[in-house]
């Protein structure tokens, strides 16, 4: 009988003790039950060379200018550094537009001066990292790209096919924003060239992009990336008998000023699309090959809805 009384009393109190702080507790519960997507894993749609998990949001257009200058020649045995103003005399350039069709899906068109290559690409957020109770720890994006090399044919006397101009990239971008200050990225990548220079050179190159980003201030970040290739490291060879292509590395800074993002970086590649900087980067990882480069992006919103 005693137990019954206690039970009933307890039952009664359950309903009675809703004070202000209990309301707050309820509100907290409701809010933590909602998984909220993380934002700003990276500052821009590119880390340095690699794609990040960020996409242009719906009805937002981004105009992007990318520059990679000539090697800076800062190694001790080079005397041309200052003479060539640390490589600023020569540059590879890519102009591109990125447009968000939905908040998760963007398309991209551009042209880079290297091999006069046009590129069409798409990036889709398959999964978004969320915080909260039923959270998911990673963002997963797919990135695909078609490159069209429009250089004149080297030999016009043979049958040349349009398909020989084409190259493709398939890439998954897996990212995790650890906290407010640190994010990292893994990008398993397949680059396919329809036409390669020699028989020994593989058409398919597999690579694993690795990158990380550290927030320095509210408007600046420091980024680092390395893209080791998993096959085709020894072929083709250059005239000296050494491997012709090399892995790409880069460090960079993002500086954001309102609608602009400036990305300033040092890298060993002058490729501006994945086909070039992942599969066909001719500069080794050494001081003499380091060059200065920048990406400048300006975003415009065409979203008039409230």
């Amino acid at each position: 009988m005693k137990n019954l009384t206690l039970f009933i009393l307890a039952f009664c109190f359950v309903g009675k003790v809703f004070a202000q702080d209990d309301l707050l507790k309820l509100a907290d519960e409701e809010n933590t039950n909602k998984p909220t997507p993380v934002y700003a894993t990276f500052k821009s749609t590119r880390l340095v060379n690699l794609q990040s998990n960020e996409t242009m949001k719906a009805k937002h257009l981004d105009f992007r200018i990318m520059h990679r200058f000539s090697p800076m020649d800062i190694s001790p045995d080079n005397v041309y550094g200052l003479y060539n103003l640390f490589g600023l005399e020569g540059a590879v350039l890519r102009l591109g537009f990125e447009y968000g069709i939905t908040d998760r899906w963007m398309v991209n068109v551009g042209r880079s001066t290297q091999r006069k290559t046009y590129d069409l690409s798409t990036k889709y957020k398959i999964v978004e990292q969320t915080r909260g109770k039923k959270s998911f720890p990673f963002s997963i994006n797919y990135f695909g790209n078609i490159g069209i090399n429009t250089n004149e044919w080297e030999n016009k006397n043979i049958n040349n096919y349009f398909t020989s101009r084409l190259s493709f990239v398939n890439q998954f971008i897996i990212t995790h924003k650890l906290n407010n200050n640190f994010s990292f990225l893994l990008a398993p990548t397949l680059v396919h060239h329809n036409l390669v220079d020699t028989k020994k050179e593989p058409n398919d190159i597999f690579a694993l992009g690795i990158g990380a980003s550290i927030k320095i201030t509210k408007s600046t970040r420091f980024n680092i990336e390395y893209i080791p290739r998993l096959n085709g490291r020894d072929e083709p060879r250059n005239p000296l008998g050494k491997p012709r292509y090399h892995d790409a590395i880069a460090i960079g800074f993002d500086i954001e000023t309102g609608g602009h993002v400036f990305q300033l970086h040092f890298t060993n590649t002058n490729g501006l699309i994945e086909q070039q900087f992942i599969a066909r980067n001719e500069s080794p990882i050494e001081l003499a090959a380091i060059r200065f480069g920048f990406n400048l992006s300006r975003t415009f919103s065409f979203d008039k809805t409230k």
């Binding site: 707050l24 509100a27 907290d28 409701e30 809010n31 909602k34 909220t36 997507p37 934002y39 949001k57 719906a58 937002h60 908040d103 609608g259 975003t299 919103s301 979203d303 008039k304 809805t305 409230k306």
Partner: peptide, 13 residues
């Protein structure tokens, strides 16, 4: 109570 990230702006930047 509101989650700050739930605020939607016309300009996503």
């Amino acid at each position: 109570q509101v989650n700050n990230t739930s605020f939607q702006f016309p300009n996503k930047l």
